[in-house]
Structures are given as C-alpha cells and as structure tokens.
Write a protein that binds this DNA or RNA. Structure first.
Length: 887
RNA sequence: GCGAGAGUGCUGGAGUGGUCAAACAGGACAGACUCAAAAUCUGUUGGCUUAGUGCCUACGAAGGUUCGAAUCCUUUCUCUCGCACCA
C-alpha cells in the first residue's frame, strides 16, 4: 500500500474529533483513568523534548482506553511567572537576542512588534501548542483547555481559594530567608543570572561569643557547634585591625568583612571603635561553660573569611591542633608577644567527642594518618577537615561533658542527632548568633558582586514542616512510581525541601489574596490544578460572581449545599479525581512533582491523593545532548513536516524508557515508513485467506502469540514503552512473517485474523493513524482507538511447542552451517541422527527442514536397526543435538 | 562538594550468580531477486580454530567474595539530572 502519512493522519484526526473520541463523559459503569502532562510554559513552541514526555502520557492514555477505561487526558497552558513578561519587555526594548529568537520561530518583523504585549505571547504560543498536539494525534479533551493567571478569572479564583485553604491550615506564613542578592538591580540572583559563582548558596554560620568583659565579646564563626565545649584557646591575626561594634546592647569584636555582612543582613549595629589584633593577644576570654582560655596569635587567619578570628578545638580540628603544636615550639613568637611559655605548653586538647576507631582526639590520629608535619600542608589539611567533618557528624558521639549541659542529656548520642539541639539551646542562652555567608564569590549579570540579603516580609509555604513531611512520606509509599528507582530521589527531596518563598513582586499570576502586593509564584500555583481540569469546561459557563470560595468548597471539599447548577461540576470532580498518572521529566522531581504531593496532602481528602507518578529522562538527538548551542533542538512542527505523526511517535518512544535519557534516532525514523508499507502489504495480501483446520504449526503460533501479548501487556502496564514496541512492532511483526512462512502462506484463517487484529490494536497507542487505516482496510467499521486490548490465554502457551520449534530451527541452521563449511557443491542429502524420544518431532517437521536447507532429509533414531550411517555420526548424538551426515 | 540515576559489542540497548561472545533493533559487508536502484529475503559481523559442540579476549577501571560474576561487595573514573525562590 502507499503510505501517504499526511493524508491518512489528518483524515483520522478529523474523524476522532468529529466523533468526540477524546471527550469523555461521566460513565459510572466504566472505571475512569485520569492522566496529565504538566501544563507547559508557553513562551516558546514545543520541541522534541516535550514530545517525549507528552507521548508517554498519550501512549498510556490510549492503552488504558483500549483496556476499557474511561480515559481523561486534558491539557492547559502555563503563563504564570516572569519569563513572558521579561521577554515582552525585551521586545519592547528591541533587544537583539530576543528579536532573533522570535525570528527563528518564524515570525515577521511586523508580527514581532506585537510581542511587546505579554498577552500576545500567550495567544500565539497557546495556539501553536494546540495545533502541534493535534497534528501529532495526541488525544486531548480540548474542551477543558485553559490558561493560568488572572487573565483567566475562574482559574485565578481557584488559586486564591487554594491559598486561603493553605493559610487556614497553617501552611503559609510570613517570614524571612536569605537570598543571593544583586545590590545594583535590587533583585534576587538565581543560578542562571550569574556570570560567576553558579551553585554558590548562602550558608548559615553560627557566631560564637567569647566573653572578654561585661557585655563585651570576641566573636568567632563556626559550623561545628558540636565541639563548642572543646575550645582551648582563640586565635587572632596580629596584623589585622578588628572592629568593635555595638549590637543588641552588647559589644562585639570581629573582622571588618563580617561587620559588613551583618549590616547587609539588616542587623542593627554601630561601629564604635577599632582594636588591633596584637592588643588582644594574651588576654583571656570566658567560654560558655565558664572555663577561661587564652587568645593567641595566628598569621594564617584570613580577614575575609568568617569573622577574621577563630576559636580553636584541637581535639577535633587538625588545623587547630597543628597550629597549637607549631606555636608551642615557636619560642620566637611566644616571646614577641610576651606570652608565658609554660602556660602555652600546658594547653592540651580537650576531648569532647568519641569517634569510633579514632578515639577521643581524632585530629591527632588524622595528622598521623596523613603524615602532616606542618601547617603549610594545606591540601592534606583540607582533606582531613572534610573527612573529619563527615566522620564526626555521622559516627561520633558526645562524651560526658554533654551529659547535663544542654536542655537534654546528649551523652552517648550521635552528633547528627544532637547538633540542632545544641544550636537551639545556645541560641536560647544568647551565647551564639546566626548569620549567612556565601559559599563562594557570585557575580551577577549586571557585573555586581552579590551579597546575602535577608528578605523579611516574604510569604512561605512551609514545606519544612516536619509533620507535613511525614504525611508526604506516607503518601509516597502508596504512590506507584514509574520507574520505581526514582523513589530514593523523592524521599530525599521531601526531606531536603525547606520553606518555599511562594510570592513575587514581579510577573504574571494570581495575587496573593491576603496580601495583594504579592503575586503567587509559578511553581506554587501549579500544584493542585489537575483537579480544575475535571470541571474546567463547565466553570466557563458559570456567572463570574458565582465563582467563589463557596463553589470550590462545595466541589472539592464536599462542603455546603451548593447551587443547582454547581452539581454537575461536583460530579465531574468526584468521578475523575484522583489523578491516576502524572508524567514529567526528571528535572521536576525536586520541585513540582514533590510540591504536587505536598499540596494534595494539605488540601484534599485522602481518597483524592495522586495514584502514580512517571518520571523520564532528557531527550538526546542522534546520541548528542540536546541544546540550543548545538542547534539540534527539533521543533515539533519540523518533525511533523519531515516524518509525520506515526513515525515520530514510534521513533521517540522507541528511543528509551525508565529514567534513562531517550535517544531520537533519525536513521530509525527514516527506515520506518518502508517498514509500515511492507507490513501493510503482508497484512492485506493475507488477511481473510487461509484454511480452517488446526495443525501443530497453528498451535505453535497460538502459543507464541499468547505469550507475546502477555509480555506486551506487562510492559504497557509499567509504561515500558520501548520494550512494548520491541515486542509488538518487531517481535510480533516477525512472528506473523514466520507463521506465514512456516505455513507457506496458508495459515489458519481465524488464528491469522486474530493475530493481525491483536497486532494492530496493540500497535495503535504508538501509531494510531496507520492502525486506524489498516483497521478500516481489513473491513472494520469502528475506530481501532476504541477497541479492546487483546486478551491472552495462558493455557494456550505451550513450552513444548516452542522447544520443538527451536530444535527444528537449530537443526536446519546446523545443516546449513556444515554444508557451508565443507564447501561441496554436490551435496543433495542430509542424514540426521537423533535420540529415539525426539524422533517424532523431527519427522513431523521434515518438510520444514527440507525447505530451510534445500536438501533431501533422512531421519534415523540412533537405535534404528536399518539406519544408514557410514561415518558413525550417531555415536555423538546428545539430547537436543542430532548428528548430521551429508551426501 | 552533596543527593539520585547510569556506564555492555560498530551503534542503541536486553541481560541482574552458571544455559553469555551476550536477546532485539540499527549500521556495515556478502549473496539471492531485478535492466538497475529501493524494498524484500538469506548469511556474516571480537580474535583464532573447526564437518557444527573448541580455545583466547571481552560487559568503564582496579581489587575482593564464589567451584563459578556483565550480574554480589569495596575502591575508583566518566556521563546525565538536581542542589531552590527559577520555569
């Protein structure tokens, strides 16, 4: 047959639309299945990367429909946030890069001007997405399509309702948090907006006070409050001038850089003086537990890092220990600063932690292990620092000193369990304070060095809430994941997530209902909207004044009596929800997909919590990573133009599965249409022909076919679409060909028909258009898309028949092989010797062997008395491996 | 640095203790058909060897467990995603 894909494809797409194949209605007799692909952000056209993820949803939807489910697959568009507004602004300013981008999308100069208006982006790209979906045969219920933001009033109200609910339940609160901040543009600086310093984050440090006098403290910074009881001395740099500041009715002495950072972090303070490092040396401070320690000189201290001075814990810090040793030997320095030699020599590490197999002074063991001789061996010391930090945190336990000192007895407890408590306890006593420091230098796009800023009137969703986390962990246990091995990452993210700043001052979206200067941020307004799909087409018809909290309470929470015209909406929600399958790329695990779980738990009754989540990898194009800079991002439109829908669909799903990165293989795509044509020809040439009796070969076919359907079904259930395609398109295709060949194009009529029908139906989720076409050509009137997935009959699977088939194949191959090896043209006859119990199998299939080898075949059992065996080959015969003699 | 996933032949990938030189697909090569090409069919595709079943070398690298490892353990290298206020 002639495969004119465009004609066939658009024909069937129109028919599906006319007959509303993808517009399901409530049908209580049928089980429902609700699938979604996260609504895409519509600031550009869909490309091959989106396509893969969409296709996983689409193929699953079609499979479930064939399995008899009432399937809902809706699709909306996302416009919340800043990219569209920012891009529109750039168009307004005639920014060349932005203009170029739109040109590449194929817009004329005149059209491009219109893109200075954000709404235009949404209109244009929304339409493009819709058309592209349709051209690829994606079976979406378009009645339920919508966009986000206040451009869509009912949706806007829905999001407001959601946030009021979250607030009522105490999941939203105002607070402060540190951000990386550009002082020039007065904006937070995300990773993408940096010229230097990608990945650097604000890190919380504890400022430890060391009492010098009445309300006067020297301040050191640390990450290791767990060793605070092991301080033996302080170090200051004699060459640095420190500042004395007034803060909270206290006087602090610390480095200039640290003071600057405190000011940036909105701390109220006043600089009241300067103190040279040398002036501090030799003085004593009182520590939290009352013991007094000496201030010693150290020239290695960097004024930029921390507070420019440190406390020393030689038991658990190799740096501190070796510095102490060095100083104890350094008579020159001791003398220079008028220090008491004996007093310094008396300083010994104070054990605080018990570290398994490192003892109570692990720093000493480490120095020996790495053979460190001096402070200048920085690489080794850095390595030790990291190793020891990890070791202490995970394995070390607190010693006796920690028995009564903090609010709970920590003696014997692990550091990882006690660290937070120590922080809390010390904060309460006012002995420490908190501030932030960047983990590295960050330069923004505006070429400014960034600082840490504390944003103070920000609204948060409290994903850090422990109880909430626990609930989400529990839901996750009940949630099916495709593939299962993504579970670890989810578990990790649930624990890792902290309170999420959910509002912005800039961008499109919904206003925060209880603080209207804020707009709800885009990842926060997209967490439960799947529920909105269930009634999206109906809510459009309600009067705007009716769209209020009462309505949403009624539909979604089953509260109140509701109005008569609201009933239908509630029914839709209650029928379709919960969501059965949501699929996205692996990059969304750490935010969207996890937020999605959190918010469902917070708002809905447990019967409406998500059933399953699919996660997939990132598309590669001909084994290259896909990226703008490589120029290998294939827009959906181009793909459609070049390959059509069915070829594209099959190729992309054949590219990969599970969480691996799928590969778009152009060669494969190129070779497909001829494969379609070939298979089409085989089907049409043979369908409806054949005989009625059932031979062994027919049973063989049934056995294989049933096994294949069984395997394919299992793969489909697990969304292992590549494996399914291999089974259905390749293995089943080959099986059909083999069956014809074995029966010399005279198969059993009904078995062959059953095979063809099963083949087409199972293939239809992947390439539905050509399957519809073939379906019609073999005389079917209904849509293949609405057929029933083939059933398998386990009783028909017969291992013996399969084993026999293997034996026959094997012997034919062996004969051919031997013929080739001896390279004799004259051979006419092959004589085969087998074990008596296998003789029947070979004799029954003698014609097949003849055909495969083009030779005369004679078969003898090894115990046949009158067998012809001039070379005594029958002696070598083993089960499953006959002897062969050629003439 | 931290978390997760992954590394198999010319390529994509199957395979998770023995039946593995490794399914299936693609590519390449050879043959059949054809005026010719495409398609289709047949064969070959780690090396050596051979009237088939044999030997060697292989599953990122190095060690280990085991009678036996692509498969289990340890270490190490490489790639992908994420590490937040950004869609």
């Amino acid at each position: 047959m002639d495969y004119n894909f465009k004609k066939i494809e658009s024909k069937w797409q129109k028919k599906w639309e006319q007959k509303k194949v993808f517009e399901p209605e409530i049908d209580k007799k049928k089980k429902k299945f609700f699938v979604t692909f996260p609504y895409p952000y519509i600031n550009l056209s869909p490309h091959i990367g989106h396509f893969y993820t969409i296709m996983r949803v689409e193929a699953f939807a079609r499979y479930k429909r064939l399995k008899g489910f009432n399937v809902l697959f809706p699709q909306g568009w996302h416009a919340t946030g800043s990219p569209i507004v920012a891009a529109a602004q750039r168009v307004k300013e005639n920014e060349p890069k932005q203009i170029e981008l739109l040109k590449k999308e194929g817009f004329s100069d005149k059209e491009i001007k219109k893109f200075s208006e954000p709404k235009h982006w949404i209109d244009v790209f929304g339409k493009i997405w819709l058309e592209d979906y349709k051209s690829m045969g994606i079976g979406v219920d378009w009645r339920r399509n919508f966009i986000t933001t206040l451009l869509n009033t009912p949706y806007d109200k829905f999001i407001q309702w959601q946030f009021r609910k979250l607030k009522e339940k105490g999941y939203i609160e105002k607070g402060e948090h540190p951000v990386v901040w550009d002082t020039k543009t007065n904006m937070p600086v995300g990773d993408h907006d940096r010229i230097e310093g990608e990945g650097e984050v604000p890190q919380e440090f504890l400022l430890v006070k060391h009492k010098l006098g009445d309300r006067k403290f020297i301040i050191s910074a640390t990450l290791r409050q767990d060793t605070i009881l092991g301080i033996t001395n302080l170090y200051v740099n004699p060459n640095i001038e420190y500042l004395e500041i007034k803060i909270n009715n206290e006087k602090w002495i610390l480095g200039e850089e640290a003071v600057k950072r405190l000011q940036e972090q909105d701390r109220e303070l006043k600089i009241i003086g300067k103190i040279k490092g040398t002036d501090l040396i030799g003085k004593k401070t009182e520590e939290v537990d009352g013991h007094k320690v000496l201030i010693l000189p150290a020239t290695f201290l960097d004024s930029k890092f921390g507070t420019g001075l440190v406390h020393s814990v030689p038991s658990d810090s190799a740096d501190d220990l070796i510095a102490l040793w060095d100083l104890q030997k350094d008579k020159v320095t001791i003398k220079k600063y008028n220090l008491n030699v004996e007093e310094i020599k008396r300083i010994k590490p104070l054990p605080v932690l018990d570290t398994p197999s490192y003892g109570s002074i692990p720093a000493e063991v480490m120095l020996k292990k790495y053979n460190v001789k001096s402070q200048s061996e920085r690489t080794k010391l850095e390595k030790i620092k990291k190793e020891l930090y990890k070791l202490s945190f995970h394995t070390a336990t607190f010693n006796k000193k920690y028995k009564d000192f903090f609010s709970k007895n920590l003696y014997g407890k692990k550091v990882s369990e006690g660290k937070d408590l120590i922080k809390k306890s010390l904060l309460e006593r006012g002995w420490i304070d908190v501030y932030y420091q960047l983990t590295g230098k960050v330069i923004s796009r505006s070429l400014t060095e960034c600082i840490v800023k504390i944003v103070s009137d920000q609204w948060f969703i409290k994903y850090g809430d422990k109880k909430w986390k626990k609930q989400v962990h529990n839901v996750l246990k009940e949630t099916k994941l495709y593939p299962e091995n993504t579970r670890e990452q989810f578990e990790y993210v649930i624990d890792w997530l902290n309170d999420w700043a959910c509002t912005r001052e800039y961008g499109l979206g919904t206003k925060l209902p209880f603080d209207e200067k804020w707009v709800i941020e885009s990842l926060s307004d997209s967490t439960i909207y799947m529920a909105y799909y269930t009634f999206a087409h109906l809510i459009k018809k309600l009067k705007i004044k009716d769209v209020n909290d009462e309505l949403f309470d009624y539909i979604l929470l089953n509260k109140g009596k509701g109005k008569k015209e609201w009933k239908k909406l509630k029914e839709e929600f209650e029928y379709w929800y919960p969501l059965d399958f949501r699929n996205s790329g692996k990059d969304l695990v750490q935010n969207h997909l996890t937020f999605f779980l959190f918010n469902h738990v917070a708002i809905f009754h447990r019967k409406y919590w998500p059933k399953s989540i699919g996660v997939n990898g990132w598309v590669k194009v001909d084994n290259q990573k896909m990226s703008k800079s490589l120029g290998n991002v294939i827009p959906l439109r181009e793909m459609y133009k070049k390959f059509g829908a069915d070829v594209s669909r099959l190729t992309i799903l054949n590219g990969g599965e599970k969480s691996e990165d799928p590969n778009w293989d152009s060669n494969f795509a190129d070779s497909l249409s001829s494969k379609f044509e070939n298979m089409g020809k085989i089907i049409l040439d043979n369908y409806g022909k054949g005989r009625n009796d059932i031979k062994n070969v027919d049973k063989w076919m049934q056995s294989f076919m049933n096994k294949l359907i069984l395997d394919a079904t299992n793969f489909m259930e697990e969304t292992l679409f590549r494996s399914a395609i291999q089974k259905i398109f390749f293995d089943f295709g080959n099986l059909i060909k083999r069956y014809l060949s074995k029966t010399e194009n005279n198969p059993n009529k009904s078995i062959f028909e059953q095979a063809i029908k099963s083949y087409l139906i199972m293939l239809s989720p992947f390439c539905p258009h050509i399957c519809e076409e073939m379906w019609k050509k073999i005389g079917k009137k209904e849509f293949i898309s609405l057929e029933g997935w083939p059933k398998y009959d386990k009783n028909k699977i017969n291992e013996d028949l399969e084993r026999q088939d293997e034996l026959i194949e094997k012997i034919s191959e062996d004969i051919n092989h031997v013929v080739k090896l001896i390279n004799e043209k004259e051979i006419k006859k092959a004589i085969v010797y087998i074990l008596p119990n296998e003789k029947k199998i070979y004799v029954e299939n003698i014609d097949l062997i003849k055909r495969k080898t083009n030779l005369n075949i004679e078969i003898y059992a090894v115990n046949d008395k009158n067998k012809y065996d001039p070379q005594n080959k029958s002696k070598k015969v083993k089960p499953g491996r006959p002897g062969i003699y050629l003439e």
